[in-house]
Design a protein around this nucleic acid. Structure first.
Lengths: 221, 221
DNA sequence: CGGGGGTGAGTGAATGCTCACTTCCGATGG
DNA sequence: CCATCGGAAGTGAGCATTCACTCACCCCCG
């Protein structure tokens, strides 16, 4: 991932001809969305940044919307995949470290996805189309898989029996989601205390600790 | 609030002349945003819904952006205010009930604000303008005030001393934020299990419980 | 020579906003 | 008490601009 938090395809084989410009278009679109925002990400700007003509876009993508959808699907960190692997790791390593890893992946993921997801809400019919194309990979699967993981740890006794895994997962994922929102909102001019803690790493450990203290069995019980 | 979750001014005095059309414009804009989305909320549509000419909008608002900002400020439930009252209530009632009340207010608030806030991220300069106009009433104050409340309860011994109030507040507010996002994303066609629990009230109690079990001193400690 | 990849020059449709103008109402002054 | 005036509120008709998208046409490789 580069500094935009955008996945770039392994550039081992230097992509030739059609595939190359296609990739350049997606890279250009992803970069523009992350820097100047989605409304300023026009077909003209994408073409200019990709070093091709506007008409060339339409040789590779049906319309502008498809470009955005492909960016979201091919250039976003695969958060859902990363979280889906968690249940298999139940019992190994520490719960705390696994959850912290989720936070470290989830915050950048949401920070990148937010502008596009947010703009989706600007037009419900576009949102409906995207929701349909997403199929069963909807955003609820992140907390859903995390809840599965917590359930697995619960069976192993590493998470207290009284815990509601769905609610706990929602708390953690929600905190990441909100944190990403705040980081975007106060781009570089956050007032004092708006982002607390300041560093991403501190946020991960503090948030997980706050959640864990309610999840793991207290030592005196 | 009406079914859009939009605040309408007390209509006791039936607003005459200028103030009336101004209010009608804001109502029309708020309704359009909530129904057809922000991109379809054009000046022409606002004027039509408000029953006045497009030019009339500009007698009351400098530009379209100001209409949106005023809607956000004058028609949104005052979440920050509601949460700011909490610290004063520390020691009275139950912590659990106070937090559940926050959830019950926060979810509809975020559900209403999300389309506008999300679209803000589509154009960073518009976001910067809005952030400046918001002054010190930024979105971080919600979790910030909630953290203050938790600190107050902490001093009273009703919240365990080891708790990080900022992290705990972030968890709860984040869960509400994310819940609102999911409710909007799966407008009426949520796949099974996408919204768990289904009812808003169950969500409030389950979420608060999951958080509390890490906040209040465990009985055996 | 055929066709995939690429281009420059448009096109129609919106959109935000302005302009010149009218209407209405309340304050002012004789 | 009425004539007059000034300004706020409102309007219809555009204007400039931007946008996504298309068309006719090339170039070059297999």
């Amino acid at each position: 991932m580069n500094r935009d938090g955008v996945n770039e395809p392994a550039a081992a084989e230097p992509l030739t001809g059609a595939a190359r410009t296609r990739a350049r278009v997606l890279d250009a679109a992803a970069h523009l969305i992350a820097t100047v925002g989605l409304t300023r990400t026009t077909t003209k700007e994408i073409a200019r940044a990709a070093g091709c003509s506007e008409a060339a876009l339409y040789k590779h993508f049906r319309d502008k919307e498809e470009i955005f959808v492909r960016v979201l699907r091919e250039r976003a960190p695969r958060l859902a995949d990363a979280v889906a692997e968690l249940p298999g790791r139940a019992g190994h390593g520490s719960v705390e470290e696994h959850l912290a890893a989720v936070v470290r992946v989830a915050v950048p993921f949401y920070r990148q996805s937010f502008p596009m997801a947010g703009s989706l809400f600007a037009s419900p019919e576009l949102l409906a189309a995207h929701r349909r194309k997403l199929g069963d990979a909807g955003p609820h699967h992140v907390s859903s898989h995390l809840a599965d993981y917590l359930r697995a740890e619960q069976r192993l006794g590493r998470v207290s029996a009284g815990t509601d895994p769905d609610a706990a997962a929602m708390l953690l994922i929600g905190a990441c989601f909100h944190r990403a929102f705040l980081e975007l909102f106060y781009a570089d001019e956050a007032p004092d205390g708006a982002l607390r803690p300041v560093s991403a790493e501190e946020f991960a450990t503090a948030t997980v600790r706050a959640l864990l203290d309610g999840i793991v069995d207290p030592p005196g019980a």
